[in-house]
Write a protein that binds this DNA or RNA. Structure first.
Length: 579
RNA sequence: GGGUCGGUAGCUCAGUCGGUAGAGCACUGGACUUUUAAUCCAUUGGUCGUGAGUUCGAGCCUCACCCGACCCA
């Protein structure tokens, strides 16, 4: 996919996943050694999912079949010849045991009950009673009803401990034969790791000091037929984590935490916007004309209308129609879809917030965006300073603001202002760096390309880059002082584009002209150039007040705040090749 | 597209010089009434990603392919 992003000719290059990337020439941030995010996890080990490998008869299958064990009938009920051995055999041997237990459970007539009323969570009990001493707990005593999944089991002859996990955390339960009865204890001993259990009892503290529920009753609430991954390491295979997120969430606390933080980030953003008087709206996900960014769309078809539709690549044009309608401050947090490659920083569907405010302009917008991110870090992490991939990120100090030229010269003082203002010099330099430059690329675009090549990845601290070329910003207002420049910024953090905003182009005639240019580029073969959106121009003709708007890539922000190197780690069900 | 690393038991991982495939967890049976990744005893479980080649002999060497992670484009 990066091949397309290398295309530098102005409206051609990709902007996959850019927050509100209206810049055709803006590329995905590239990372270099030293600035790139190294994977924190160890390289995965691979073992093919047993259920999908079409392995022929195995020796084991034959051996197993020879056993007169009753389980065999369950394992391979239809196996008459060794050749029929199921590829799922390995796992089924373990699952068959559990299915047998489930069958026993069903015979009691009370399998899968739903009448257990949980009244306490592990986290709540730990918080309330962890400070209490053994004697204080004994004096109270606290009657509790907890439920959760068995994550650890320490079964002894007449008394056992299990560790139950619920959303809030873990708590230990103590189960003794004398308290729950011989029959119940025998049944309990047949339960497996992963089973869902309800426990009733009183809190006490064990000899070693652990807060524990001394059970007067335990019930099996749901059977887990499949074995959990190894209890200490959990699931480490990245692919399996993504494919079976449910297993990942069961076994890896870090995953649970990441998605809890993600929720807090989104909440904090929503709160900040609403508190500031923004109206949350939902605009179409299916567009007759894909617009608002330069990207390849997904196509779909509406049968009743018999029309082609596109999954949206950005909500921008609809949100600005709302500002025309008088909804002066609007925002939307939702998915965008771009039919491009998948990488550690790109998922075909990703979440973005876009917001628009009438009677604002891009400098005020930068202040607001800065405040929003600061707020979000504080709300989600409790701190505006945090670690990302081993380095510190500080949202507390003011975000730097550099023009493209300043950003280049900060890393490369050897480039003079005169050289950077010389299109021919820039072309030479870029071609020496093996960056393609289109014949039609203007000075601003050449500067942008050099910036992307030399400076972008090194922008670790939050930095607004301003003065983008108008020719790569077809929806942005031109600068009054220089019509070649748009009133636009992009925010970079950790070498990665996080936000993109500008004073909106509200001149319908200029917009129509820019759409025409885009349409021409599209006709010339640029798949990512924009369509001419006549209804949007019509809306502008009713009058869009001076407005500024911004898009923030939520997934990338979550990556920063959860110290995640891969976008898949912050998306619950990332797009995967079919199994 | 190129490069690097990887694919061995359900899970986490070893595997020496090319000489009959190992451990822990999980599972099964047994012991155990305050454990802590419980412990102890005894089992079960593998055509080593796929296919070819070299060899008396391949998890290991060679080639091709498949899948994955990361990097580069």
């Amino acid at each position: 996919m990066f091949s397309s992003t290398r295309k530098p000719i102005s409206p051609a290059a990709s902007s996959t996943c850019h927050p509100r990337a209206t810049t055709p020439a803006t590329r995905v941030p590239r990372f270099r050694a030293g600035t790139d995010c190294q994977p924190t996890r160890r390289p995965p080990k691979q073992s093919p999912p047993s259920c999908s490998s079409a392995r022929p008869t195995t020796r084991r299958a034959r051996q197993t079949r020879q056993k007169p064990d009753h389980q065999i009938a369950i394992i391979m009920p239809h196996t008459d010849t060794p050749q029929d051995a199921s590829p799922q055999h390995d796992e089924n041997r373990i699952i068959a045991e559990r299915r047998g237990k489930l069958a026993e459970w069903r015979q009691t007539g009370s399998a899968y009950p739903n009448d257990f009323a949980r009244e306490n969570t592990a986290g709540q009990l730990n918080e309330l009673y962890e400070p209490k001493s053994r004697e204080e707990l004994a004096a109270l005593p606290v009657e509790v009803r907890v439920a959760g999944r068995i994550m650890l089991k320490r079964v002894m002859g007449k008394a056992s401990f299990i560790t139950l996990q619920d959303l809030s955390g873990r708590i230990q339960a103590y189960i003794s034969r004398d308290q729950i009865g011989e029959e119940a204890y025998a049944a309990f001993k047949r339960w497996d790791m992963g089973d869902m259990v309800g426990a009733v009892g009183t809190l006490f503290r064990t000899r070693t000091g652990e807060l524990t529920v001394e059970c007067s009753q335990v019930r099996l609430l749901a059977k887990s037929l499949r074995p959990l991954p190894e209890k200490f390491h959990g699931l480490t295979d990245q692919e399996q984590k993504y494919r079976m997120r449910y297993v990942d969430l069961i076994t890896n606390e870090q995953s649970r935490l990441t998605f809890a933080v993600r929720s807090r980030i989104v909440q904090s953003i929503r709160g900040y916007m609403v508190d500031d008087g923004f109206l949350e709206v939902e605009t179409p996900m299916m567009h007759p004309i894909p617009g608002g960014a330069s990207a390849k769309p997904f196509k779909t078809h509406h049968n009743a209308l018999d029309m082609e539709l596109f999954l949206r690549i950005a909500p921008e044009l609809y949100l600005k129609r709302l500002v025309v309608g008088g909804l002066e401050k609007v925002f939307e947090i939702n998915r965008n879809f771009r039919n491009e490659g998948i990488s550690p920083r790109h998922n075909p569907e990703f979440t973005m917030m876009e917001f628009y405010e009438a009677y604002s302009e891009y400098r005020r917008l930068m202040n607001f965006t800065e405040g929003l991110l600061r707020h979000s870090a504080r709300q989600a992490l409790g701190s505006e300073v945090f670690e990302y991939q081993g380095r510190t990120l500080d949202f507390a100090k003011p975000f730097a603001r550099l023009t493209i030229i300043e950003a280049i010269r900060r890393d490369h003082p050897e480039f003079s202002v005169e050289q950077l203002g010389d299109a021919a010099w820039l072309r030479d330099k870029l071609s020496a760096m093996k960056v393609e430059t289109g014949a039609t690329a203007g000075l601003g675009t050449l500067q942008l390309l050099l910036f992307e090549e030399t400076a972008e990845a090194g922008l670790w601290d939050p930095t607004f880059i301003i003065d983008y070329p108008a020719e790569v910003s077809p929806l942005a207002r031109r600068s009054d002082s220089n019509p070649e420049i748009a009133e636009r910024f992009e925010l970079f953090i950790a070498g990665r584009e996080i936000a993109n905003g500008f004073s909106e182009l509200n001149d319908p005639e200029d917009q129509a002209a820019r759409f025409l240019e885009q349409a021409k580029a599209k006709d010339a073969g640029d798949e990512e150039a924009m369509y001419y959106d006549a209804d949007y121009v019509r809306a502008l003709e009713y009058g869009l007040p001076p407005t500024a708007g911004c898009g923030i890539g939520i997934d990338r922000l979550v990556m920063l705040l959860t110290d995640s190197a891969n976008i898949r780690d912050v998306i619950l069900f990332p797009q995967m090749r079919p199994e």
